[in-house]
Each structure stands twice: as structure tokens, then as C-alpha cells.
């Protein structure tokens, strides 16, 4: 019986996106983002949005991604408004309502930026919804990232739910004690201190204890068995080189675009 779940036979079903390693997925996100910065043609941007969205649909559309889109919606709307009205390059009116003119150039500029934001959200959403924390941790360790750094990155992912729990407990206790609704900013800030201070001390105490435990438990020992990746990835190293090269090339293009304006 396999007790520790790290053999392929234990995984019920391998989907296509399990064949791509996490670093490649991140590089894809970076590559798409850079593409959208270099080629600012509207149709190109829209097709990039569609490509990244299809990528997401073919894998899994998680609620986190939808939340992220929702999160940016306000900004996108105000951006289109502000730029459409006040963009410095505005020349051609698009429409007018009661003496307020909305311009084409500004709207286009804002739509391009919005597309870029959506590309970033979808591409990162693809990475997030198709990998798990432990898969990423194992992969990073397997490709040679020092365990200390892997630990650092991954424990952040694990600590957030813990802190949320602590926060709920303390908030509950505070609510039971009763806090008057505060009005001014100073009052509000002062009212959270009695909750924040014990929470912070408790959190730091836990990190002291954890650092002691980790040392006692042989963390960072040179003999550590490197983790084996969770899946067998296809052409991981080739993908990394190719995507890194393309991304660096695009960054070079962008820099050239900027500098050539001053020449």
C-alpha cells in the first residue's frame, strides 16, 4: 500500500494540463503579457484575450479568476471613462451626451489596457487553477531551488488560512465583548489595535516556535532527499528555454520601441 501519495498510479485521471510543468505555465503567462505590451493593435489584443480565455476554459475556470475579474471591473470602467473623456491624444469624437464628448483615442487606449489586464488575469488563472501548492513545491525543489526558498514560498500559501482562523476567533471574542461603532479614521484605527496586537504577538510566537521545530527536525539538512515531481512533464526544459528566450526577446523589442522614440 502506498501511504504517501506521490506515485502516478494514485492519480485518478491525468488531464492535458498536468503534462505541462508549473514553471512553463508561469512563463506562458509572462510571455502572453509581454506580447500584449509589444503589439498594441486592438485586434491582436482581443485575440490574445480570447486565446488566454480559451486556455482557461479548456482547463478549469475557477471562482478565484472570476473574482479577480470582478475585482478589476471598477477600474476598467473608470479607466475607459476617464481616458475617453480626458486622454491627451483625444481628437476624434465617438459620441456626445449633453456637451460631454467621448473620444475614440482615449477609449481605444483604455480598452487596450483593459485587454492587457484581462490577459494577465486569465493567464495567471490558468496557472492557479491547474496546479496545486504541493505540486509546485515538489517541482521547484526537484529543479534545484534551495529547500529554504521553496519552504518560504509555500508556507505563505499555507499560513493564510491559519491566520484567517486566528482572526475569526479573536474577532468573535472582541464582538462578544462589544465594540461601539467608531466614526473617525483615528477612532477606527484605535479600535482595531486591541485585536491586532494579540494576533500579531501570537503569529510571531508561532513563527519563533516553528523556526525552532524546523531546526530540531533537520530542516535544511544537506542530506535531504529531493522531492520527485508529481507528474511526468513533457519537454519541460525545452519549454523553459524557448519561452524565456521569446520573453527576453519581447522585452528587448519593447525597450527598443521606447528608446527609438527618443532617437
Amino acid at each position: 500500500m502506498e501511504i504517501r501519495d506521490n506515485s502516478l498510479s494514485n492519480i485518478a485521471k491525468i488531464r492535458w494540463y498536468n503534462l505541462i510543468d508549473p514553471v512553463t505555465k508561469l512563463l506562458v503567462a509572462l510571455f502572453l503579457t509581454m506580447l500584449s505590451f509589444v503589439f498594441t493593435n486592438l485586434y491582436f489584443e482581443v485575440s490574445l484575450v480570447l486565446i488566454s480565455f480559451v486556455l482557461l476554459l479548456l482547463s478549469r475556470l475557477s471562482s478565484a479568476t472570476i473574482n479577480a475579474v470582478y475585482f478589476c471591473l471598477f477600474l476598467i470602467v473608470t479607466m475607459i471613462l476617464i481616458q475617453g473623456l480626458f486622454y491627451s491624444g483625444n481628437v476624434h469624437p465617438l459620441f456626445s451626451i449633453m456637451n460631454i464628448t467621448f473620444y475614440r483615442e482615449g477609449a481605444l487606449y483604455a480598452v487596450t489596457m483593459s485587454a492587457r489586464i484581462l490577459i494577465i488575469i486569465f493567464a495567471i488563472g490558468f496557472f492557479m487553477s491547474t496546479t496545486t501548492i504541493s505540486e509546485n513545491a515538489k517541482y521547484l525543489e526537484a529543479i534545484g531551488l534551495p529547500y529554504k526558498l521553496v519552504y518560504l514560498l509555500m508556507s505563505v500559501c499555507y499560513i493564510l488560512p491559519q491566520i484567517q482562523q486566528n482572526m475569526k476567533k479573536i474577532q468573535f471574542a472582541e464582538r462578544a465583548r462589544g465594540i461601539n461603532p467608531q466614526k473617525t479614521v483615528a477612532q477606527k484605527v484605535r479600535s482595531i489595535l486591541p485585536i491586532l496586537i494579540p494576533l500579531i504577538i501570537k503569529t510571531f510566537d508561532q513563527s519563533i516556535n516553528r523556526s525552532i521545530t524546523l531546526q530540531l527536525r533537520g530542516f535544511d539538512s544537506p542530506e535531504r532527499t529531493l522531492a520527485t515531481p508529481k507528474y511526468h512533464y513533457v519537454r519541460a526544459r525545452f519549454n523553459h528555454y524557448l519561452l524565456s528566450f521569446l520573453t527576453i526577446f519581447l522585452i528587448g523589442c519593447k525597450l527598443w520601441q521606447i528608446f527609438s522614440r527618443f532617437l
Binding site: 504517501r4 501519495d5 508556507s155 516553528r210 533537520g218 530542516f219 535531504r224
Partner: peptide
């Protein structure tokens, strides 16, 4: 405090127990 004893980086109880052994290259 048993919470502080944990590595904080294990998905399962089995992985948590294995942590020391992995560190020592077993």
C-alpha cells in the same frame, strides 16, 4: 503547542510524519 510542531508544509498526515526522514535522506 502541537501546532508549532508541524512543518506547515504537508498536505497529509503521512507527509508530515515523513518530513524528518526526508530531511535526513532516508
Amino acid at each position: 503547542d502541537p501546532n508549532s510542531q508541524l512543518s506547515g508544509l504537508a498536505d497529509t498526515v503521512a507527509d508530515e510524519i515523513a518530513f524528518d526522514l526526508l530531511n535526513h535522506g532516508v
